[in-house]
Design a protein around this nucleic acid. Structure first.
Lengths: 233, 233
DNA sequence: CAGTGGTCTAGACCACCAG
DNA sequence: TGGTGGTCTAGACCACTGC
């Protein structure tokens, strides 16, 4: 029995982490089972379970029925990225936010977009291009296709007043999506919009969202040079 | 009472998601409290709690004591990124993995690294530069400083045989870290190493890890053109 | 202050799967 | 096939916080 009982799942988690960090339990080691730890810590098994499950979700522990719980040998650490609304992201930095619509019109998407969004060959979709500003400087160029089937009230929206980014999150729920991060060189057009040099390295986020098997939107966000996306482990 | 009882937390989660996706519960709406839902679903409150807590962690719900549970108005969706060992990432794509050490030596780090790693002005650290190959082509350039205080057996390691990336995860646990994603233009040196053109847009990951208040390592990973980091929502 | 979510408990049964 | 984690339950108390 330890001097002070460990009776909250947070305390259990801290104790387990401390044993890992002190290398009492090393990567690859099998640790005691839940029942034994519950006895040792003086708490219920469910409490130990909650703590160990949380650690497994972050990738620090590996758990398998019958095989037991091990300290992860190759900690595939999971970083959680928050994907905020662009306006919030800018305002969180205490910078004035600005927004300028470039184009918004319904048209037939090019074949690659049609394929990715699984649209019929004669279908039309809403294309919205806009520039988000931070501190009166170009911040992100947003280039987006929206499937009208997924957002029926789409035609009545004035994308001069609200960004597609913001309108969609509240008005077109999605069930799942994919997101990709990459780097591209500024094309002449992008360089002009973002007021930077042709060839500058730009950070890009591509996002596809779905509602069941209906594509909702496909968006490309191109950030001005110098942008960094940060998170912690 | 629904036709079939909902008695697993997964089923509760599915039912709640289905009500959100069908817009029976819209963004901003207050949903019934745990006790009421437990009665409605015919399960224990703890089961409802487990389901709603999981949804809150992904950002779909907003929960506050006394105020209740609401469908998130601005779903700050959390994407979890897996940060794998580079060799595993390459092998997962069924490509042959290669590794070439460029330099590994103990030296005094430049002032900016010293500052970021919180090292004494006369301290030395191990600098390791290496190239990871996928399919015999340059894949990632790794440029890293390692604090010898955090990895005592450091000098005996032959970084020709194992990458610093891989050795560290198993031999120098960390308590927390920061990670940043950005885009840079290829310098002449980077272009040479990655066999690409000067000025090409490259995806970069910067990572700092700590063990308590001791810096463990600071790494820069520069990916060859075309690299995309993907995840799902 | 009172209602909500947050958590702990003790016990139970079950699903999975390594040996 | 037995040991392990995964989960559910019913009940209880607590912490926070909007009203």
């Amino acid at each position: 029995m330890t001097a002070t009982d460990i009776n909250s799942w947070q305390a259990v988690q801290d104790e387990v982490l401390s044993r890992i960090h002190s290398r009492k339990w090393k990567p690859g080691d099998l640790i005691p089972n839940e029942a034994d730890l519950a006895v040792e810590f003086g708490c219920a098994r469910a409490t130990v379970n909650r703590a160990l499950r949380a650690l497994a979700e972050t990738g620090i522990l590996d758990r398998r029925r019958k095989a037991g719980t091990r300290v992860a040998l190759h900690p595939v650490r999971k970083a959680t990225l928050e994907i905020p609304i662009i306006r919030h992201e800018v305002e969180a930095r205490n910078l004035p936010y600005g927004y300028a619509l470039i184009t918004a019109k319904q048209q037939r998407p090019p074949v690659d977009i049609r394929a990715k969004m699984n649209l019929a060959s004669d279908a039309t979709a809403m294309k919205v291009s806009a520039l988000h500003l931070a501190d009166n400087k170009p911040h992100v160029y947003e280039d987006r296709w929206i499937n009208p089937l997924a957002a029926p009230s789409l035609k009545q929206i004035d994308f001069n007043k609200i960004s597609a980014n913001e309108w969609l999150v509240a008005n077109a729920t999605f069930t799942h999506g994919d997101i990709m991060f990459s780097a591209v060189s500024a094309t002449p057009q992008l360089a002009d919009i973002l007021r930077t040099d042709i060839g500058a390295a730009l950070f890009v986020i591509d996002r596809f969202t779905w509602h069941g098997d209906i594509s909702v939107t496909c968006a490309k966000l191109v950030y001005a040079p110098g942008y960094q996306m940060k998170t912690s482990l």
